[in-house]
Structures are given as structure tokens and as C-alpha cells.
């Protein structure tokens, strides 16, 4: 696993550094392949074949397009790769039994990506490719730092996965009364339904929903206050 992570870190370094196009493509390929190989070291879904195929399809799409988004020199292509990464992540959401969240993420990010697209085309593409997209800031340091963190996280997950499961859910969960009782579906078959998700959000997290609504209101007002006025000239 660490060898795969090291290979992908070297690929990321190649891909983010200002080099020839072919070297950068090789670097991006190496980075994605290393990440996917590192993911294969973990226990994948052990269901039927179709589920496994779908998992590797979605995970591969998410990882490859994530690498391409980070290393792409053209902001329009980067936004497109981000859309593909979002689709891959939504597929993984679906595999995890949360179809509502997959749909909601696609809807929210469809709007966000279209707006981002407009911004990129409007602001950055007026004079072709800009110089600041060609040079990355501190590629070596950031790749080393992020990949160290990634290796630490994956190592922890592997160790936790190798440990034998506890007999009960641990002392903190059995002691006292069950926290958030509405968030626990009565039986496993209702796990993915919107009804049980609604009971959890509007039951256990009702105050948080109110706070989130207030946050949306404040953010809307703030965006209007920050955005430049029409009297100050156009873009």
C-alpha cells in the first residue's frame, strides 16, 4: 500500500510540475493508478459481481477525475473533471444505500458547476489560457504533506480493519440511554428509505435544521452585500 501511495505521490509531483505535456499525462496516469491500487488493498464490497463492478467503476471514475481536475491546466476542463468526480461520488453514495443524498448532491452540484462554468468562461477565458494556470504553487511540499496525511489515514483504517470486532458496540454506546433514537432504523430494510432519513433529520436534528436554515439566510444576505454593485462598473 505504501509503495502504491509513493508511486502516486511521484505521479502527482510529475503532473503538477511545469513539464512537457506527455510527462504530465504519464504523471496523472501514475497517480490515479497508484491511488486505485492503494484502494484495492482494503476490503471491498463482497456482494454480488454487479455490485463490485459498480464500486470499482465509480471509485475509479472519482479518483481518476479527481487527479485530472487537480492537474488540469485549463480551468474549463478542470470544472468538467470535477463534474465527473461528483458523479462518481454520487454513485458511491448510491452503493452505500443513500439514494436521496446521491440525487440531492447531483442537483445541488449541477447548479454549482454550471455557475462555476459561467464564471470561468466569463472571467478567465477572455484572453485564452492564463499564465497563472500554468504554474503551480509549491507542488512538492503540498504533495508530500497531503500524501503523508493520506498514508497515515489509510494505515489507521487498515489497522482498525485488522483488529477483531468488539463483542458489543463498545462501552460508550451501551452505557446510558441510546443517543438519537430516531436515527436508528427499526430494521435494516428501511435503512435506505427517505422516510427514515426524514425522521432522523427532522427528529433528532431539528435544531440543527433551524440553524442550517438561518445559515443559508445569512449567507444569502452576505453574498448580496459582498457582490460588487452595478454602479461600480461591469466585469
Amino acid at each position: 500500500m505504501f509503495a502504491a501511495l509513493g508511486a502516486s505521490a511521484a505521479g502527482m509531483w510529475l503532473a503538477t510540475s511545469p513539464r512537457a505535456v506527455r510527462l504530465r499525462v504519464i504523471g496523472a496516469t501514475l497517480a490515479s493508478a497508484g491511488l486505485i491500487v492503494a484502494v484495492t488493498m482494503f476490503d471491498g464490497p463482497s456482494g454480488e459481481l454487479a455490485q463490485r463492478i459498480m464500486f470499482w467503476l465509480f471509485a475509479g471514475a472519482a479518483l481518476v477525475s479527481g487527479v485530472c481536475m487537480v492537474t488540469s491546466r485549463d480551468p474549463v476542463y478542470a470544472a468538467l473533471w470535477f463534474a465527473l468526480a461528483t458523479l462518481g461520488v454520487c454513485g458511491l453514495f448510491m452503493l452505500l444505500g443513500s439514494p436521496f443524498l446521491a440525487a440531492a448532491t447531483i442537483i445541488v452540484y449541477a447548479g454549482a458547476i454550471i455557475v462555476t462554468f459561467l464564471f470561468v468562461i466569463m472571467l478567465a477565458q477572455q484572453t485564452g489560457l492564463s499564465f497563472y494556470d500554468q504554474r503551480a504553487r509549491t507542488p512538492v511540499m503540498s504533495v508530500v504533506a497531503s500524501w503523508l496525511m493520506l498514508a497515515a489515514i489509510m494505515w489507521t483504517f487498515q489497522r482498525v480493519g485488522a483488529a477483531p470486532p468488539p463483542a458489543n458496540e463498545g462501552p460508550a454506546l451501551v452505557a446510558g440511554e441510546i443517543p438519537n433514537p430516531l436515527s436508528r432504523p427499526a430494521d435494516e430494510a428501511t435503512f435506505h428509505t427517505l422516510r427514515s432519513l426524514g425522521r432522523s433529520v427532522f427528529g433528532d436534528y431539528l435544531y440543527a435544521v433551524e440553524i442550517a436554515g438561518t445559515l443559508l439566510l445569512v449567507a444569502g444576505i452576505g453574498a448580496i452585500a459582498i457582490a460588487p454593485r452595478r454602479t461600480e462598473g461591469t466585469i
Binding site: 502527482m12 503538477t16 491511488l35 492503494a38 484502494v39 484495492t40 488493498m41 482494503f42 476490503d43 471491498g44 464490497p45 463482497s46 456482494g47 464500486f55 471509485a59 472519482a62 479518483l63 479527481g66 487527479v67 481536475m69 487537480v70 468526480a85 461520488v89 458511491l92 452503493l95 452505500l96 497563472y132 494556470d133 504554474r135 503551480a136 504553487r137 509549491t138 507542488p139 511540499m141 503540498s142 504533495v143 504533506a145 497531503s146 500524501w147 496525511m149 493520506l150 489515514i153 489509510m154 483504517f157 487498515q158 480493519g161
Partner: peptide, 24 residues
Amino acid sequence: DYGSFLAVGAAMFALGGVGFVTRR
């Protein structure tokens, strides 16, 4: 069965971190 989902999540986080620092 869910270890690989966790690994994909961690990898996405690391990729985003690299992009956040390196892009201008």
C-alpha cells in the same frame, strides 16, 4: 466490507488538499 469506501474518501480529501494548495 466498507474499508475501500473509507480509502476512496481519504484519497479524495488528499487530492482536494493538493489542489487547494497548488492551484492559483
